[in-house]
Design a protein around this nucleic acid. Structure first.
Length: 410
DNA sequence: AAATTGGACAACCGCAGGGTG
DNA sequence: CCACCCTGCGGTTGTCCAATT
């Protein structure tokens, strides 16, 4: 592949960036845009390789980066998206504005991963570690279906990214035909270009918020999707999965999206998370902010979770050409809950689940004292274990269900 | 007070893949 | 078609710093 040496060059600095270097990079990009990263260091007077400059910019210097602790809501989003997308940090980052993939990845590795492990949940598969225990009922089936959904969604995301690229190329060539003589350097037209505008232009494509889904984009996806889907009822009246003609989920072109009738839940109610409205990206927003009102935030979030659950016993998926129905009644989630009469456990939601099982975690300490509802000292019985994991997957399903129909994700 | 440990996060590494001449 | 350039991405390492011994 003829990989270029990049940082192998002697004389190039590595390691932490100094404020002076930051200033140089910032000043240069603000004035000229980054242009070619490879050429940038020399032009900016930096003894760094272009790659290092790019990383510094995208992970740290970009003006639209939000720093500081992750809010509970952001954490929930990360967990849920990770359950669907896996270690696709860049894809996850597109749903968390102002957070970089690197930041999310780090947070996952240092915080969430450990916590899930502690809960007995495999952070890779998001399944209970002892999956054998679940094989007797439908739980693993549901998990498998979610895994399939994730695969489809993965493919769909890639397809959408392709479309974005293609449309961008088209618009560029159109501009070119119209005689646009703009520089290849972004934002070079004015020295007073604002940092945010500059950022939009310079943002790597994959990290740019996807544009509102255009009709044509969806149509293309639909067309791809027209290869034929079977609606396969997974016994028990359970989840209806998208299965290719051959029935083996071989098609990578899922257009899984969600019913436009789905309630527009999880919109931000307050706090800094709502400052992202200027973004064209239809995102999943949660309640609250990253700051100090966690108790209130949690309460509101729980209300959101509750209403989500109540209103989505029947979850409808729309796949463009087909509508599928996931009847929560039939899944593994419901039976034990009904029989145990512990609807409040469901209502408790994911936040408490995390908090409850990790009340010893100082970084996310529980305000409710961390006492186990069941008074079992926090160890948890087997049924608690299942209920917790039911909640876990329910929360993911709820996220899926609640995603607005125009979400770039679904 | 010094040494050690561990967490957090910035930065680097190297592969993959698209674009281009 | 090939060689190279460039960028995106995920995994890993390095560094800093606070807590603990």
């Amino acid at each position: 592949m003829g990989r270029s040496p990049c940082c192998d060059k002697v004389g190039l600095k590595k390691g932490p960036w100094t404020p002076e270097e930051d200033q140089k990079l910032l000043a240069y990009i603000e004035e000229h845009g980054h242009g070619s990263w490879r050429a940038l260091p020399a032009k900016a007077g930096l003894q760094r390789c272009g790659k290092s400059c790019r990383l510094r910019w995208t992970n740290y210097l970009r003006p639209d980066i939000k720093r500081g602790k992750f809010s509970l809501q952001e954490e929930q989003t990360i967990i849920q998206l990770h359950a669907l997308l896996g270690n696709r940090w860049s894809a996850i980052a597109t749903h968390l504005p102002k957070r970089t993939d690197n930041e999310i990845k780090n947070y996952w590795n240092t915080h969430i991963k450990k916590r899930l492990t502690k809960m007995g949940i495999d952070p890779v598969t998001h399944k209970p570690k002892n999956d054998a225990l679940l094989s007797s009922d439908g739980q693993s089936k549901t998990a498998a279906n979610l895994s399939h959904m994730a695969q489809w969604e993965s493919a769909r995301l890639e397809a959408e990214a392709r479309l974005v690229r293609e449309s961008k190329i088209r618009s560029h060539s159109l501009q070119h035909q119209l005689g646009s003589s703009s520089s290849t350097f972004a934002s070079s037209s004015s020295a007073s270009t604002s940092a945010s505008a500059l950022n939009n232009n310079n943002k790597p494509e994959a990290q740019r918020p996807p544009p509102p889904p255009s009709r044509s984009s969806l149509d293309v996806l639909k067309a791809w999707n027209s290869g034929g889907w079977l609606e396969s009822n997974e016994g028990n009246g359970g989840i209806v999965s998208n299965v290719g003609v051959s029935g083996d989920l071989e098609s990578p072109t899922s257009t899984l999206s969600f019913s436009e009738n789905a309630p527009p839940i999880m919109n931000g109610i307050g706090g800094e998370n709502n400052n992202n409205n200027d973004s064209a990206m239809p995102m999943i927003e949660f309640v609250g902010n990253s700051g100090n009102s966690s108790s209130l935030v949690k309460e509101e979030a729980e209300q959101e979770w509750k209403s989500t659950y109540d209103s989505s016993i029947t979850t409808t998926f729309s796949s463009g050409l087909h509508e599928f129905t996931m009847n929560m009644e039939g899944t593994w989630a419901s039976e034990s809950l009904r029989t145990s009469g512990s609807h409040d456990i469901v209502e408790e939601g994911f936040t408490n689940l995390l908090l409850k099982t990790n009340s010893d975690d100082p970084s996310l300490s529980s305000e409710d004292g961390g006492e186990s509802k069941n008074g079992d000292g926090g160890g948890g019985t087997n049924s608690d274990f299942y209920e917790d994991n039911n909640n876990y997957w329910n929360s993911i399903l709820n996220l899926v269900n609640s995603s607005p129909s125009h979400s770039p994700m679904f």
